[in-house]
Design a binder for these strands. Structure first.
Lengths: 206, 206
DNA sequence: TGTACATCAGTGAACGCGCGTTCACTGATGTAC
DNA sequence: TGTACATCAGTGAACGCGCGTTCACTGATGTAC
């Protein structure tokens, strides 16, 4: 029996179920959050039996990992779309920060598996590095906007990395604490986001 | 049989086991994190059987809630100790922010149940309000330091609440992302904390 | 001071549940001749 | 074109596990007389 025959795929079923499983998992994640994700609940949602998942994923963590990868792709696309749209560096930086928070607000559970799971940001590479870290692209896009702000004098910060990091942690904390402490008398999101980015990046007044 | 007799306590056993259960739960939390906390694991750690816990706590959530309350008390004490020590408002604000992050670094799992659990910050009151929210005292202490900075001109911010909120979310995000993304090339914690507080509060240079 | 009795903190067995994972299987899909 | 056969995606039953929770109980602690 030649090798070519052994690897043949059934009428596209090979990848269809994989896709169905991921879709079901994504639906469950959005509905019930990360704790609601189990092999059995995903199978139930997908209309199959639990063991069927093993044909397409090693285990639950592999499914989750695929969801995380998709979510990062989603965020990257969103941020680079904003980046492409806006030429002015300061306006772009502000818009990206707002888009970041908007993403976290619209997809809180997706955001949670991206930035609350210890394993989410680390890829499977033997040699983890900043470039291969998930979210590196998103961080880079924001960091680039900041660099341009500094270059054009719109930002009077000098330490690009520390400044970018400070903005990032600010936005992340805002997303986290607003869901954790919903009874807190929060100021408007946009105001806090603008305050964070403008002051941390030391942007000149608009 | 008079009522007085029915409520008598055994040789101090009444509260001793309650204390033991909480100690065991605190030990487990520190060791295994919030996911490791189950009624059975706590009972195991305390050297008793699981049903015994019901005599002292309604359910697992009640135990966790007691842990959360203790942790907030711990943080409050820590911050007000710093507040008492340092007279200069700007130095005090900086020191409190560092202490906040130091607390989160030293007790990451305690911090997690305080600020990652949706239920942690809300007390059981029918009418939740900012004053009764957990962490309100800690937030107030920091907010007071900021107010004084503004009053003395050390801070050129004007919107106390938004500024205090921005600092808070910055510190929280720093704690969160450093544990989630340990492979990220983080700048020194103190540098990021100082950057956050000095820029967001617009402190005059030291 | 001694004894019979009440209290009640903690036990141990049992339950039903959902989970991840295994394994032999079934039966539709496609292939060889 | 028709039939026998191989493939393999997905099934269904079963397993052991740890969980929360229940319930009748035990036996040491303290009390009444």
């Amino acid at each position: 029996v030649p090798d070519a025959i052994r690897t043949r795929n059934r009428k596209g079923q090979g990848t269809r179920l994989r896709r169905d499983i991921l879709d079901a998992a994504a639906r469950l994640l959005a509905k019930d959050g990360p704790e609601g994700l189990t092999l059995r609940s995903i199978a139930r949602e997908a209309g199959i039996t639990a063991p069927s998942i093993y044909a397409h994923f090693e285990d639950l963590d592999t499914v989750k990992d695929a969801l995380v990868a998709n979510a990062f792709q989603h965020l990257d696309q969103l941020l680079s779309a904003v980046a492409r749209e806006i030429a002015d560096p300061a306006a772009r930086l502000r818009a990206m920060c707002r888009a970041y928070v908007a993403f976290g607000d619209e997809y809180p559970n997706e955001y949670a598996i991206m930035f609350r799971l210890k394993t989410a940001l680390v890829t499977d590479d033997e040699q983890p590095s900043i470039e291969r870290m998930r979210g590196a692209e998103a961080f880079g896009t924001v960091s680039d906007a900041l660099s341009e702000c500094i270059a054009t004098g719109a930002s009077s910060a000098s330490d690009t990395t520390t400044t970018a990091v400070a903005i990032w942690v600010g936005l992340d904390g805002l997303l986290n604490l607003r869901t954790t402490a919903p009874t807190f008398p929060w100021p408007s999101v946009d105001v806090v986001v603008d305050t964070l980015v403008e002051r941390i990046a030391m942007l000149e007044p608009r």
